[in-house]
Amino acid sequence: MIEIKNLYKYYGKLMAVNNLNLSIEKGEIFGFIGPNGAGKSTTIKILSTLLNPSAGLCKINGINVVEEPYKVRRILGYMPDLFGLYEELKVFEYLDFFAACHKIPYKERNAIINDILELTELTIKKDTPVGGLSRGMKQRLCLAKTLIHDPQVLVLDEPASGLDPRGRVEMRMLLNELRKMGKTIFVSSHILTELADFCTSVGIIEGGRLVVSGSIEDVVKSQGVSRHIKIKVLDKLEECENILKSMPEITNIEPAVLEKFFTFEMHADDQALADLLRHIINSGIPVVSFFDKGGNLEDIFMKVTKGQVS
């Protein structure tokens, strides 16, 4: 659905995007993660036909973004990181204006706008002037505007920035909802953990270069970052600790005696974890829970991005 090949972008001598290659299938949510100045917004602007690349090829649904920008704009919804709104309009009028721009017939507009307001939970604000909305509502309104022509591909530049934790969760639920509707979503963020639990794949970019990409598990595995495991037992704490200590690949064992659990880190794939659990149980230790907290995503992020900026 989205295809990027050998993409370069120079601002004067500054290389903002450096040989970027990506391929995103239909129905995926792709998380595009990187620190400030990594080149996320630049890539996204090129994807949404607002900026010409210095070199390379971008295709959305097989359509070249440089050669046929207007065709691309018809199937693509772009939400900028910094956007303006017509503050003096009411929410409904605002959406109606953009619906009219997209040549949606007058009779159908009302129903479409009401659906979208419902989806973005703005129905009660229908007649409020846009200037009187909170930051999070403005963000959702901009997303609503992005959805008005029912695009197949959504390109969202930091949709959750500036939102409170609740707003972030709601934004995430909204994106999940949209994915269920069959849309392909390309979403950027500074924060890996924020995207990790609902993106089907992620890419980490730094200094204009894609450092890793793939599904979260692949990324965790490829980076050789240890997984954080938590195990809770009924008793036989010492025996359990001894078993763990006897394994060379297990590090940082931290017993919490009162609560009767351990946390430890381990370089292992799923098979090795299953083997470990069987071994502990076979040794007669009553295991209450065995929990993989996942690779520490912060660790991965810190490991692959070295704090350099393009």
């Binding site: 949404s48 693509l76 919804g77 900028p80 953009f98």
Partner: peptide
């Protein structure tokens, strides 16, 4: 100045 031109350009208008 209002940063709405991007939205307008993306709004399907030639």
């Amino acid at each position: 100045e209002k940063k709405t031109l991007t939205l307008l350009r993306m709004s399907g208008l030639s």
